[in-house]
């Protein structure tokens, strides 16, 4: 019995030392991890709303949750650029989180895939940037598309799917199309862009 108490005390001590050390490291790394995630979203938003470099992007909340973003070209919020929203859909092997931006008449400005874990060499081509280019060749085709064109070619739309990764292409395209449909309804119903 005495032995058990001794062993328990030793294990307790080791566990306390270990968690203490981890708490210390966590304190150092946590601000960086949070900054990383915030930076990812801020940069993503700027990239899908071109023209807001000198302006502001403000989140719009519905019932306490951020649903979409409004972008302005100036700090005084006089010149609206458009809206941005995060679309999430399950692709072939992972959740794909795509940020997209539209102008005030709901024509796509740009897209940016924040995270995906699809098949390397196939599905991951949705993010591939060719040597010397500055943006993804696959996502470039979304620029200037209208809502009714947002379908992959196999479904009769205007988006060419990636060879060998139709499921991934379709998941991204459909998620943008669904989110955009919702956004359009939400904004036109509430007459948001009149008092923009």
């Amino acid at each position: 019995m005495k032995e058990i108490v001794k062993f328990a005390a030793i294990l307790m001590l080791v566990a306390v030392i270990a968690s203490g050390a981890l708490a210390y490291v966590n304190k150092i790394t946590l601000p960086r991890i949070i900054a990383q995630q915030d930076g990812e979203l801020t940069n993503g938003l700027k990239s899908v709303l071109p023209g807001t470099e000198n302006g502001v992007i403000e989140p719009v909340e519905i019932e306490g949750e951020i649903v979409y973003y409004k972008g302005f070209a100036d700090k005084k919020k006089m010149q609206p650029v458009g809206f941005a929203m995060l679309a999430v859909n399950y692709g072939y092997s992972s959740d794909i989180r795509t940020l997209f931006g539209v102008d005030t008449s709901f024509v796509l400005l740009a897209t940016n895939i924040l995270s995906q874990n699809e098949t390397p060499g196939l599905g991951t081509k949705c993010e591939e940037i060719k040597y010397g280019d500055s943006s993804s060749w696959w996502q470039e085709q979304f620029i200037g598309k209208f809502l009714n064109e947002l379908k992959v070619d196999k479904d009769g739309g205007q988006i060419q799917s990636i060879t060998g990764a139709t499921i991934t292409s379709r998941a991204i395209t459909n998620s943008i199309s669904q989110s955009l449909t919702w956004l359009k309804e939400e904004i036109t119903e509430n007459n948001q862009y009149i008092n923009f």
Binding site: A15, A18, S19, L22, A23
Partner: peptide
Amino acid sequence: TYLRTITFIL
């Protein structure tokens, strides 16, 4: 949550 690996394995 950072303690989850160590907790789970124990």
